[in-house]
Simulated assay, not measured.
Amino acid sequence: MRAISLVRQKNLLYLIEQYGSIARLNLALGRPKKDATLSQVKNFAKHHKTNKPREMGVALARSIEEKLNYPPGWMDKEHPEIQPIPENQEDIKSITEEKKATSLKLTVIPLFEIRRRSTDGRFVPFKIGNVQMPDIFIEKSAYPIRAEKAESFYVDELTSSDLVPYGSIVILDKSVRSYTKDGLYLVELNGSVVFRKIISSAKGGFIVQSSSTNSEHIQNLEALKILGFGVFIWVQQAL
């Protein structure tokens, strides 16, 4: 068994834990819900012809990183921060105290979900709670954001795509009400609230994407009412 295969399998186990099941991870990756590939890699199932254990190849590793917005090569590296807490009691005490010190100050951000309204079929936001984000994460990010300007959205099966994977939470800067730069935007389009990626076109106008394979070139954004700009995106993890 190659060492890199063990590393990739360990990171795959972490992703399965994040999403709650292989089926949900498959959906986030744009695969059929019952696709057996990840299960076979997870268990190193033996190939019926070669009798060799199935390992995660380069193509699958890069595809997972791209679909889940991880940097290239993430699946190939050890990540101590996602590994189990060591059994040594002194190490546990040290890690616990460090976590307390870095999580004393939290920013509370309202959490919404975009649901299909039964009366007219439109997608509209409903508040479902709050999320808490450590202030240090906001302060040291590439896009600092003030709490009063932030909103968060949970992405479910109805609104997920390869731009915003199932189970993810998107943090928006709701003060952005017009195109400022290429990126993910929450917009009102044809009466519904949806996520779209907006890219300035070298030929003039804009490219508006609903997924990596579905895009439209338009001359202006008059048909879109921009409600916010996507600042962060991450997947919920059961603690």
Rank of each mutant, 00 (worst) to 15 (best):
Y143T: 14
K140N: 15
E188R: 15
V194R: 15
P125S: 04
I171Q: 02
S161V: 08
V170G: 10
E139Q: 14
L163G: 05
E157D: 13
R196Q: 13
G183H: 06
P144W: 09
Y185N: 08
Y179S: 02
V124F: 05
I138S: 07
P165L: 06
K140I: 00
F195D: 05
F137D: 12
S152K: 05
V187K: 05
I138Y: 01
V155S: 04
D173L: 10
V124E: 10
E151Y: 02
D135Y: 10
I114C: 09
E139D: 14
S141E: 02
D135T: 12
I128D: 04
R116P: 00
R117H: 09
S118K: 12
Y166F: 15
F195Y: 12
S178R: 10
T159H: 07
L163R: 07
D156V: 08
D182W: 01
F195I: 02
S192N: 11
N190Q: 13
K127M: 12
S152Y: 09
P165D: 09
S118E: 10
S161M: 08
V124Q: 06
A147Q: 15
E188Y: 04
D120L: 00
V131F: 08
I128A: 04
P144A: 07
D173V: 09
I128L: 01
L172I: 14
R115S: 02
R196S: 08
Y179I: 01
G191Y: 06
S118L: 09
S152L: 09
K149S: 14
A150C: 12
G129F: 05
V170M: 02
E139A: 13
L158G: 13
V164Q: 10
K149Y: 12
G129Y: 02
Y185V: 06
E188W: 01
G167W: 03
Y154V: 01
I128N: 00
P134Y: 05
F137M: 04
Y179A: 02
T119S: 14
P134S: 04
G129D: 04
A150L: 09
F126L: 03
S118T: 10
R122N: 08
T119R: 11
L172S: 03
N190R: 14
K149L: 10
I128P: 00
I171P: 02
D156E: 11
F137L: 13
S141D: 10
D135G: 04
V194F: 02
Y166L: 15
G167C: 07
E188K: 15
F112I: 01
V170N: 03
Y185C: 05
M133E: 06
D182M: 01
K181Q: 14
F112V: 01
M133H: 02
I138K: 10
L158S: 13
R115D: 00
F126Q: 07
I114P: 00
E148R: 11
A147K: 13
R196L: 09
Y154A: 11
K140L: 13
E148T: 00
Y166Q: 05
P165H: 08
T159D: 09
F112T: 01
V124L: 14
T119P: 00
S161T: 15
Y166E: 11
Y179Q: 03
S178N: 06
D135F: 05
I138Q: 12
S152N: 01
V164S: 11
G191M: 08
F126V: 09
E157Y: 12
R196H: 11
E113W: 00
R116D: 00
F126R: 03
D135A: 11
S141N: 07
V124T: 12
S175G: 05
P125I: 05
